[in-house]
Amino acid sequence: MNKPSAIEEILTNRTRPKSPPAIQASATFAWRALLRIRYVPEQLFDVTVFPIIFLLMFTYLFGGAISGSTGEYLNFVLPGILVMTVSMITMYTGLDLNKDIEKGVFDRFRSLPIWQPSVLVGALLVDTLRYLIASTIMVTLGYILGFRPEAGFSGVIMGVVILLLFSFSLSWIWTMLGIIVRSEKALMGISMMFLFPLTFLSSVFVDPSTMPNWLQKFVDINPITFVVDAVRTLIHGTGTNGDVMIVIYISIALIAIFGPLTMYFFKNK
């Protein structure tokens, strides 16, 4: 039998500490996400396998046809596939949340006096870490296959940083959908419907100047094109700072629109 006295003893303290600042709360939720990865390492499957498959597939499938040699094509296409792969992986953020949020523990989170977005920000921070793992794997494998960044190592780092910023911002769309959409299947369908055209109809694989006019128009306003151009610019030192600034604006806009929307649906679920 349980001794009530033991429980009474630990109840004496009624003073509640001050609620944690937003950063501590977010970090605590990030810690939760990390612990979950430790228990279920399969969660890392998508960020390890996709980069490898995509890179090998596109390099050897298109390399010979488009550029004549795989080595040359790799230099052109790797930044593009990097953006495509990581953008695709952001979708899993929504899928994971969709399953997670049905659990009773979210009721507890929502009844705590904390900065409510921290529940999602923490999870997204750890997802950003997953995107970093995917990027590292792809760049490393690319290097082995003959990829040589012209702006050197620091260029690669800056390219990856700007990609992570964009991916973190893009994740808010899937987070919002993950809260609204009921079934995982429907969510997957919606995400694919956006991601496939956006990633393929961009400057990922080929230079837009080779495309028919009408297609070029779409590709030129596609946000993914801007991100691909910025990452290429940073990795090969070819473009201008303007390319990078546009991605920063796009990212801020995504967070400004979908952050509050997500929180609205989260609170009123």
Binding site: R32, L35, R36, Y39, V40, K103, G104, V105, D107, R108, S111
Partner: peptide
């Protein structure tokens, strides 16, 4: 609040 179903994270 202690909810009716799992009110802690069952994975941890």
């Amino acid at each position: 609040l202690t909810g009716q179903f799992a009110s802690v994270d069952e994975e941890l």
